[in-house]
Amino acid sequence: MTNNLVEAKKLHKNFGHVHAVNGVDLNIKSGEIYGLVGSDGAGKTTTMRLLVGALKPTQGEIMICGYDLEKQVELARSTIGYLSQRFSMYEDLTVLENIRFFAEIRGLSSTEWLPRSMEILEFVGLDKFIDRRAGQLSGGMKQKLGLASALVTRPRLLLLDEPTTGVDPVTRQDFWQLVIKLVSGHEGGGVSVIISTPYMDEASRCHRVGFMKAGKIIAEDTPSNLRARLNGRVLELRGSPINKLRHVAHQDVDVEDVAAFGDKLHVRVRAGQADLIMKRLPDEIKAAGGTLTDLRIIPPALEDVFIALSESNHG
């Protein structure tokens, strides 16, 4: 017996000739927040759909909370809460009526649904708005209603498909505080969360991140360890004109990637080459007629790692 809430082995999903998911293994521990990140079409959403049992894998097996998703589908599903990217709610029903609807279709009895709904609405901070029509809620509140609906059955595994697309940073902070509370025990404890996202600030909030590319997980680790892969390989340049600096940096053979960020550049260099590049770049920029005001090695961001991995030749 393991304490993994999710164990997926050698998952494959083909659509005709397309291998959307091509040999994915996933082991998610109790209380873990796992981020599934990758480009459009990398297989994130297909993987999520396999895990909720909405799609049948072509090959492989999935155990959720000890239940075989194929043979014990109802039991397995009863442990899952799912918030999809396009969460639909009834705009002309109130907050409480929406929750009731979701609670009842998930099999909560007439005596159970009300106390549980009130408890979960209080948890997400919507208890003062139970009589408001869903259509009148702000974007952030709609999202919280979505989360409450996914949580009303007390799932042990919460699947979030790009949950904070379209919400501002303040709301995003609130949302993440709720997710952290869920996994750290506020709601009975030990809830695991799998979240898919194209945003790196969101990925960096996860305990572990799996990078998907072409249906495979090509890297899996904590955000800190992933960032450490590029330690000493990301330089920040400031100076003017920024376009000139950009062209000069691009031309250096040991430079792998250049990105302009407003008034500065981020430059990724080949392993072991940073010192040499830092010696020669100032001269190259001067020769091109540019001015360099600042050049330093900066801590790599998860975005740098993502781009480096996307360009690599795994799989």
Partner: peptide, 13 residues
């Protein structure tokens, strides 16, 4: 909005 960092980088280039 909604695109991954690689596509975003290419767009901003």
């Amino acid at each position: 909005s909604g695109v991954d960092p690689t596509a975003r980088r290419a767009f901003w280039d």
